[in-house]
Every structure is written in C-alpha cells, then in structure tokens.
C-alpha cells in the first residue's frame, strides 16, 4: 500500500475513533433525555488536566486516570441535576439546556485556568510513547494510534452489546422511546438518566486522555473543537446509534485526513462541516438513524 495513503488512513481512523467516543457520549444523554451535553469538551479537558495534576503528585498514571474519571463521572451527575433537569422542567422541553450545558463547560474552563494555569502543560505518556511503533508489511504503525483505536472500538462495541443484550440496555431503550411509559412499567427512569450522564462524562474523560497523549499537551481550551467534530460524527452516523457514532467518527476522521493530504491541509477541518451539511440535506436521520415518525 502507498505509504502516503496508509499514513493518512491510519491517522484518520485513530482521530476518527476519538470523535466516535465523543459522539457516543452525546448519544447516551440523547437516548435518555433528548438532550446533548455541550460541556463534553470541558470534561475532556478537565479529565486530562486532572490526570496531569494527580500524576504530578506522585501517583501512578493509571491511578491518576481512574481518579480523574471518577471526578468527571461525579460532574456528569451534577450536570444532569443542576443544568439539564431544571432547564427541562422549567421550560417544558425548550432549548435552555443548550445554554446551560455550554455555560457549565465554559465555567469549568475558567476554573481549570484559575487552578491549573492557562498555559499548555505536558501530558504524560499513558501506555506507549510517541516513539513506540510496530512494523506491518513494511509500514510503521504507531502504538499510540493503535491504543486509541482499540480502546475506542472496544468501548463502542461494549456499549452496543450492553444496549442490545442486557436488561438495563433494554430499559435504556425503553426510556429513549417513551420515558413516561417506562416509568409506569417500573423502570427506574431517574437512575437511568443519571447513569447516562455519568457514562457520557466518563466517555468524554476517556476521549480526553486518549487525545491528550497524542498531542502531548493539554490546556483549559482543549476539547472545544473536538466536541464539535464529535457532534458532526453523531449527526452523520445517526443521532442515537452506537454503530452510527463509530461509522460517523471514522468517516469524519478518514475523509478529513485524506482531503488534507490529497487536496489541501487548509480544507481538512472544513470538510467535516461540509459533510454535516450534506448529510442533513440528503439523509437527515444519518447513516444508521431511523427517520422519526409522529403518530397523531
């Protein structure tokens, strides 16, 4: 295979897998509340910055990652309780949650800047360094890229299995279809909603750690662009679909890199949003989504 094409493809798959993780996180809260947490980018940043901070205190990097994920999981509960629920309850389903989740994200950025400083700080290598790679058929494949891909695909497949094969997964599915009916049938809707925000935040944290080790630095503004690309991936794949999130993320990642490599690097970022516009015009429900049907 052509080295040039292969390098672009691998990088596209790797960053696309991160977009997919973010898209899956957005999907989780969409399933249970029909809302998206636009503060996901800040949770990615916070998890990465906390990992740096905790590991700098002498703790092992894996413990630092776990501790940081616990903090962002707790913040997920906070976001549901104090930004999404009041907005949904007070305005009967208006779009107030968009502003409140985004606002909370900006607040987190400010807090991170205050307590960790606003400059980029070095992110430690979690498993492999940028110099670790394997050679397959003469091609260098970075182990960091492989880890990102493996973790993202494994998590997405696990979620898909969870939704399809477990009772709790079926309960989530029921809540996504009709939360009131699910409540009548004894499904613990509130716990499921809280759980979806916790898991969504954990996914954001994992995505943050994975992408921070690729870049090598993290700062309070980290994550904002990535959540936009995750949103594009979610819409492209079909809002609410795990496999759609994976397909959408990989598509955005690979097409962006190929356009950047073969056409122009200046067009690399813009192509994702061109894809979004195209998807909304041609197939609004996305690749794996189903069109919504309203019954009178």
């Amino acid at each position: 295979m052509d080295d040039f094409f292969f390098s672009l493809l691998l990088a596209g798959i790797s960053v696309g897998a991160v977009y997919a993780l973010i898209a899956l996180g957005l999907n989780l809260t969409f399933w249970t509340t029909k809302t998206l947490n636009f503060g996901q980018g800040s949770l990615m940043m916070l998890c990465a910055m906390l990992t740096v901070f905790i590991s700098s205190q002498g703790l092992a990097i894996t413990l630092a990652v776990v501790g940081s994920l616990a903090v962002v999981a707790a913040l997920g509960v906070f976001i549901e309780r104090w930004t999404v629920r009041p907005a949904l309850e007070s305005s009967g389903g208006s779009m107030g949650w968009v502003v409140s989740t985004l606002g909370f994200g900006i607040f987190l950025q400010g807090m991170a800047a205050k307590y960790f400083g606003s400059q980029a700080v070095a992110f430690p290598d979690v498993v492999f360094t940028a110099q670790d790679f394997v050679t397959v058929f003469g091609q260098y494949i970075s182990l960091q890229y492989l880890v990102v891909l493996a973790v993202a695909v494994a998590l997405i497949l696990a979620f898909e299995l969870f939704i399809r094969r477990t009772v709790w997964g079926q309960a989530v599915h029921a809540v996504s279809l009709d939360p009131e009916l699910a409540l009548v049938q004894g499904i613990p809707v509130r716990r499921l909603i809280l759980g979806s925000f916790m898991l969504s935040s954990i996914l954001a944290g994992v995505a943050g750690v994975l992408i921070a080790q690729i870049g090598g630095t993290v700062d309070p503004a980290f994550g904002f662009d990535l959540v936009l690309l995750g949103f594009v991936a979610a819409v492209l794949g079909g809002m609410g679909s795990s496999l759609g999130a994976l397909a959408g993320g990989l598509l955005v990642g690979v097409i962006s890199k190929l356009v950047g490599g073969y056409v122009s690097t200046a067009a690399e970022h813009g192509i994702a949003f061109a894809l979004l516009m195209l998807a909304l015009a041609v197939r609004p429900q996305g690749l794996f989504g189903r069109p919504e049907v309203s019954k009178a």
């Binding site: 390098s7 596209g12 890199k257 950047g260 490599g261 690399e268």
Partner: peptide, 30 residues
C-alpha cells in the same frame, strides 16, 4: 491547537524534504 498534523507532515515527507521549519507556538510545535 490542532491535535494531529499527519496530513501536513506526510505532504512534506512526500516532497522528499530534507529539513523542516516550524513557524508557530510551542504547544503546537510539540
């Protein structure tokens, strides 16, 4: 603040560059 520069780098590599100059700030250079 881009987190991946693969497309730019492989284009430079494809041009058989012997040396590369980066004009930007430190975090991006990293």
């Amino acid at each position: 603040r881009a987190q991946d520069m693969t497309a730019q780098l492989v284009r430079v590599q494809r041009a058989n560059a012997e040396a590369m100059l980066v004009i930007g700030l430190g975090a991006d250079f990293a």
